[in-house]
Amino acid sequence: MRKHFLISSLLVLVLGLILSGCAGNETNTKKEKIDTKEVQQMSAYIGTDACITCHSETGQGFAMTSHAGIFKSLDQYNTDFKQMVNVWDGATKENPATKAINLEDTYGVMMDSYVVGNIDGFSQELYRVASLEKSEQGYELVAASLKDYNSDGIQDWSAKAYSCAECHSPGLVAQGLGIKNLEPGISCETCHGPGSIHAQTKRKEAISINQNACITCHTLGQPSETEDGSSLIAENHYGTRNWFASDHYTSGYVNCLSCHTSHEVNKEGSMLKGDNFTENCASCHKDENFDIEEIMWKNPTDLHDHVTRDHSFGAIPYEKIGDNPETKEVEITDPKIIKKLKSLIK
């Protein structure tokens, strides 16, 4: 009995010593540089539920952001999606296929408007099979587009090719292991990469943490040109393209996350560190007073409220781009500015 007691006391002592070091072990005290990119290639997606197991506050904050609402599941609408419709393949010109589909079987809704799904036998992977239209009762289901395919005098539902997935529903086009764990829209692993090895080893370096994640979608891009190449056509993310011409960016001292938040919103509900534009700028430019309409102009010919406010912060003023509000598409016609933007692309 005494022997037993002795052994137990010894074990308690050893365990006490082990556990006493348990606090504050999150930092990597072992000098090891991890090749994040390579580790991520070997990782599998684990899904938001897994991430918020530990990062619950971050998850709650993210759910408030506009990123989280970019693609919603059908159950977030009080619209009745349970209805059969006959849709035609609007992405094919010759002999388009037609199929009866149940709108309930779609993946979800992009930006409260496009109902996105996959249709067996159609030429493309993803389609805007229907649209939501805001009405007094909420949202109403309408065709994505109408066309009389069989010449019976009745307009048919045309499914349009859906090319916004890369940024608006990255979960639908992600590649790699564990993609079944991803939600269709933007989720943790859209920006941070597949998280299995990070979750298992708790190593920060096993996950992507950098603003390259923002640039993936808020990109410099390849601006479309008019046919003669003399002017640039505005794209949806026009504003963030001009960011690369700003002093903020070229100085190398400021990045997206200097002004923006990634997992929380301000009082206005936007992903800004300050509570409003003025306060945000004032965190560096204390005594200056900027006019948002001037320094972050919004293009007046933006048809669908698609275009982000200009992010060149004065490097590309609206007056200088040579826009003609008469022409519907927003254009940059000033050759100097076109040259500048093109040189940024490389």
Binding site: M42, S43, I197
Partner: peptide, 18 residues
């Protein structure tokens, strides 16, 4: 030098997770 994952281990791990 940068540490990367041992491919055999990573594959085993992915199988385990699946």
């Amino acid at each position: 030098t940068y540490t990367s994952t041992n491919p055999l281990l990573a594959n085993l791990n992915n199988l385990y997770l699946e």
